[in-house]
Design a protein around this nucleic acid. Structure first.
Length: 314
DNA sequence: TATCGACGCCAC
DNA sequence: AAACGTGGCGTCGATA
């Protein structure tokens, strides 16, 4: 499996307490602990995803549960060495921010510039008021846009008739007009050239974009709408990763270890005494990673947390 | 015994 | 009939 395309195995953690097996949760992770290091070491593929994302195998450490109580228990088993802490740095809503930039949606750009709750903003624009329900619907719609929207997909997710979902899509396009133009121009370009491009010029090819098979063609269209956004996000975090250790070393922080990447998140292990100095450097490298090649019209927000486990660092 | 594909579920 | 993007992996049944 590990061909020349596989990234050097990277990191993981000290398995510090009772462990996954004792929780009765995950024998596979338990067995993945390297007896010589006491850590779990994953492998990253640099060409694992069509969009330019990394993928992680043996074990996959990019899909460790987080949403449920049991999931968080599993994350509690990922801990630093004594005297150290884990630091998790996440890009906040990076794909929606990139969509706001790429589609040049003024209201979304302004919302991000002012640090607004973007789903609440969307709810207000679309439904006139922000409630628990309208915000949840707006969040679903925002994600649907990133994934290449269809009335049927949105209808299934929101559990409403397709006609009603179409009405929401129409309203969304009316309120955020740049989105429809972005989708149209992206598809026209992919149909004629055969590939999409990230903001940095990396291409993703779509050989079935003009297929006569409807399902095949529509699937390619959805992927083509998503690829520049997801791919640009992947480009940005890779740029941050390349710059991160040199920037930390420049700041006298050569003992900070970069352990994991989870698409929009970087996880570090560092001496507790280094947290205060490392935090602003990590934040700056990530926030400025698009520069100088690309100047975004939205800020890139970075949320940073620390703790004595991967769960606690969030 | 090994391998493959469908399915369901986990993450972002 | 199905239907929103990107992945990995455990289980199951069919097959070699």
């Amino acid at each position: 499996m590990n061909g020349p395309w596989a990234c050097s195995a990277t990191c993981a953690w000290i398995e510090g307490h009772d462990g996954f097996g004792a929780l009765g949760l995950d024998d596979a992770l338990q067995e993945a602990i390297n007896p010589q290091t006491g850590r779990v070491h994953t492998s990253y593929s640099l060409v694992g995803a069509q969009t330019g994302r990394l993928s992680s195998t043996d074990p996959n450490l990019q899909n460790i549960p987080i949403r449920t109580a049991i999931g968080r228990q599993i994350r509690e088993a990922f801990v630093p060495e004594p005297g150290n802490v884990l630091l998790a740095a996440d890009y906040s809503q990076i794909e929606l921010r990139l969509a706001a930039h790429m589609a040049d949606v003024a209201s979304l750009r302004e919302a991000f510039a002012h640090g607004e709750d973007i789903h609440a903003r969307t709810a207000r624009e679309m439904f006139g008021e922000v409630t628990r329900d309208t915000r949840a619907r707006a969040k679903t719609i925002n994600f649907a846009i990133l994934y290449g929207i269809s009335r049927w997909g949105l209808a299934a997710r929101l559990e409403v008739p397709a006609e009603e979902a179409q009405g929401m899509i129409d309203t969304y396009f009316l309120r955020f007009p740049g989105i429809q133009r972005y989708i149209h121009e992206t598809l026209e370009s992919v149909r004629s050239k055969g590939y999409s491009e990230t903001l940095f010029g990396r291409k993703t090819w779509f050989p079935r974009i003009n297929s006569k098979n409807q399902a095949e063609r529509q699937g390619s269209e959805r992927a083509a709408i998503n690829a520049p956004i997801q791919g640009t996000s992947a480009d940005i975090i890779k740029r941050a990763m390349v710059r991160m250790l040199p920037a930390l070393a420049e700041g006298g922080l050569g003992d900070v270890r970069m352990l994991l990447q989870v698409h929009d998140e970087l996880v570090f292990e560092l001496p507790e005494a280094r947290v205060e100095a490392a935090t602003p450097i990590i934040r700056q490298v990530m926030a400025e990673a698009a520069l100088p090649a690309v100047t975004l019209t939205v800020p890139l927000g970075v949320e940073i947390g620390t703790g004595m486990s991967w769960d606690a660092a969030h």
